Amino acid sequence: MKLKDSLGTDLVARLATPSNIRLGEGIFKSGGVDILFWDDNKATAKVSGGQTRRTEIETSDDGLNLP
Protein backbone atom coordinates (compact mmCIF):
# COMPACT_ATOMS: atom_id res chain seq x y z
CA MET A 1 0.00 0.00 0.00
CA LYS A 2 1.39 3.41 -0.95
CA LEU A 3 1.72 6.10 1.71
CA LYS A 4 -0.31 8.68 -0.22
CA ASP A 5 -3.19 6.21 -0.44
CA SER A 6 -3.09 5.57 3.33
CA LEU A 7 -3.31 9.17 4.49
CA GLY A 8 -6.37 11.34 4.59
CA THR A 9 -8.45 13.58 6.82
CA ASP A 10 -10.66 10.65 7.93
CA LEU A 11 -7.64 8.74 9.23
CA VAL A 12 -6.21 11.80 10.98
CA ALA A 13 -9.55 12.49 12.63
CA ARG A 14 -9.65 8.93 13.97
CA LEU A 15 -6.05 8.97 15.27
CA ALA A 16 -5.69 12.48 16.70
CA THR A 17 -7.62 14.68 19.09
CA PRO A 18 -9.17 17.89 17.73
CA SER A 19 -6.68 19.98 19.73
CA ASN A 20 -3.74 18.03 18.26
CA ILE A 21 -5.13 18.52 14.76
CA ARG A 22 -5.37 22.29 15.34
CA LEU A 23 -1.82 22.36 16.74
CA GLY A 24 -0.47 20.38 13.79
CA GLU A 25 -2.25 22.61 11.28
CA GLY A 26 -0.78 25.68 12.97
CA ILE A 27 2.74 24.25 12.90
CA PHE A 28 2.34 23.35 9.23
CA LYS A 29 0.90 26.75 8.24
CA SER A 30 3.75 28.56 10.02
CA GLY A 31 6.33 26.62 8.01
CA GLY A 32 7.35 24.36 10.88
CA VAL A 33 7.36 21.12 8.86
CA ASP A 34 10.42 20.28 6.77
CA ILE A 35 10.08 17.09 4.70
CA LEU A 36 13.43 15.31 4.82
CA PHE A 37 12.50 12.20 2.81
CA TRP A 38 9.44 10.98 0.92
CA ASP A 39 8.87 7.95 -1.27
CA ASP A 40 5.96 5.63 -2.02
CA ASN A 41 6.12 3.91 1.39
CA LYS A 42 7.81 6.23 3.89
CA ALA A 43 8.07 9.87 4.88
CA THR A 44 10.42 11.52 7.36
CA ALA A 45 10.04 15.11 8.54
CA LYS A 46 11.53 17.58 10.99
CA VAL A 47 8.73 19.29 12.91
CA SER A 48 9.43 22.51 14.82
CA GLY A 49 6.65 23.68 17.08
CA GLY A 50 8.20 24.71 20.39
CA GLN A 51 10.43 21.65 20.30
CA THR A 52 12.08 20.24 17.19
CA ARG A 53 11.35 16.59 16.54
CA ARG A 54 12.00 14.14 13.77
CA THR A 55 9.00 12.00 12.87
CA GLU A 56 8.38 9.12 10.47
CA ILE A 57 5.38 7.43 8.98
CA GLU A 58 5.53 4.27 6.90
CA THR A 59 3.26 1.80 5.13
CA SER A 60 3.57 -1.89 4.40
CA ASP A 61 1.29 -4.48 2.86
CA ASP A 62 -0.52 -4.54 6.23
CA GLY A 63 -1.32 -0.81 6.12
CA LEU A 64 -0.04 2.19 8.03
CA ASN A 65 2.83 1.67 10.48
CA LEU A 66 3.34 4.31 13.15
CA PRO A 67 6.53 4.16 15.25
Rank of each mutant, 00 (worst) to 15 (best):
residue 59 T to L: 10
residue 36 L to P: 00
residue 53 R to A: 07
residue 20 N to A: 12
residue 13 A to D: 13
residue 14 R to F: 09
residue 53 R to C: 05
residue 39 D to P: 05
residue 43 A to V: 11
residue 18 P to K: 11
residue 62 D to M: 15
residue 17 T to A: 14
residue 32 G to K: 01
residue 10 D to G: 13
residue 31 G to W: 09
residue 60 S to R: 12
residue 67 P to S: 07
residue 12 V to N: 06
residue 41 N to H: 14
residue 38 W to H: 14
residue 65 N to Y: 13
residue 21 I to S: 04
residue 20 N to F: 08
residue 45 A to M: 01
residue 33 V to L: 05
residue 42 K to H: 09
residue 17 T to D: 13
residue 28 F to W: 10
residue 52 T to D: 12
residue 8 G to M: 03
residue 47 V to N: 01
residue 64 L to V: 09
residue 7 L to G: 04
residue 18 P to I: 07
residue 1 M to I: 06
residue 45 A to K: 00
residue 15 L to G: 05
residue 16 A to R: 03
residue 61 D to W: 10
residue 64 L to F: 08
residue 9 T to C: 06
residue 31 G to V: 08
residue 22 R to Y: 04
residue 64 L to C: 11
residue 45 A to H: 00
residue 51 Q to V: 08
residue 15 L to M: 10
residue 38 W to K: 15
residue 7 L to Q: 02
residue 46 K to G: 04
residue 58 E to W: 07
residue 9 T to V: 15
residue 4 K to D: 11
residue 9 T to R: 14
residue 60 S to W: 07
residue 54 R to Y: 14
residue 30 S to V: 07
residue 67 P to W: 05
residue 32 G to Y: 02
residue 18 P to S: 04
residue 37 F to S: 05
residue 55 T to L: 14
residue 17 T to H: 11
residue 1 M to T: 09
residue 12 V to P: 03
residue 29 K to L: 11
residue 22 R to D: 06
residue 47 V to G: 01
residue 40 D to L: 10
residue 40 D to R: 13
residue 55 T to F: 11
residue 51 Q to D: 10
residue 41 N to P: 01
residue 32 G to L: 02
residue 53 R to Q: 12
residue 28 F to H: 11
residue 67 P to M: 04
residue 16 A to K: 04
residue 42 K to A: 03
residue 22 R to V: 13
residue 52 T to S: 15
residue 49 G to L: 06
residue 10 D to M: 10
residue 53 R to K: 15
residue 17 T to C: 07
residue 41 N to R: 13
residue 32 G to D: 00
residue 37 F to K: 05
residue 4 K to I: 07
residue 11 L to E: 03
residue 52 T to N: 11
residue 15 L to A: 10
residue 8 G to W: 03
residue 19 S to G: 10
residue 54 R to K: 14
residue 19 S to A: 15
residue 3 L to I: 02
residue 50 G to M: 00
residue 7 L to E: 02
residue 17 T to L: 14
residue 31 G to Y: 12
residue 56 E to M: 10
residue 29 K to D: 11
residue 5 D to T: 06
residue 20 N to L: 09
residue 29 K to T: 08
